[in-house]
Amino acid sequence: MTETDTMTDTKTRIAKVYINLKEGTLDPQGETIQKALRTMGYSKALSVRCGKVYEIEMEDDSPESKKQLEEICQRALANPVIEKFEIKW
């Protein structure tokens, strides 16, 4: 497949995967950012949880692709001990 093919192929789907720490897991990064926001004077930002977003180009949004992405999240992108994930198509 050439680069042009990829660009014009409208069938592919970009899925967004949100990874974040589970509730109760300490997030020192988020806490540090929240403290910095407070120092900057933003008193309304009460807490920050810091996570990651992956944009993954999938071949299509068929049930098989959805199943595969779910598995990718469980096996690779998230560590189930500390993290949770959410997929948005």
Partner: peptide, 10 residues
Amino acid sequence: PGALVRNKKM
């Protein structure tokens, strides 16, 4: 078992 996360004081 378990996980290692970012040091508490970053």
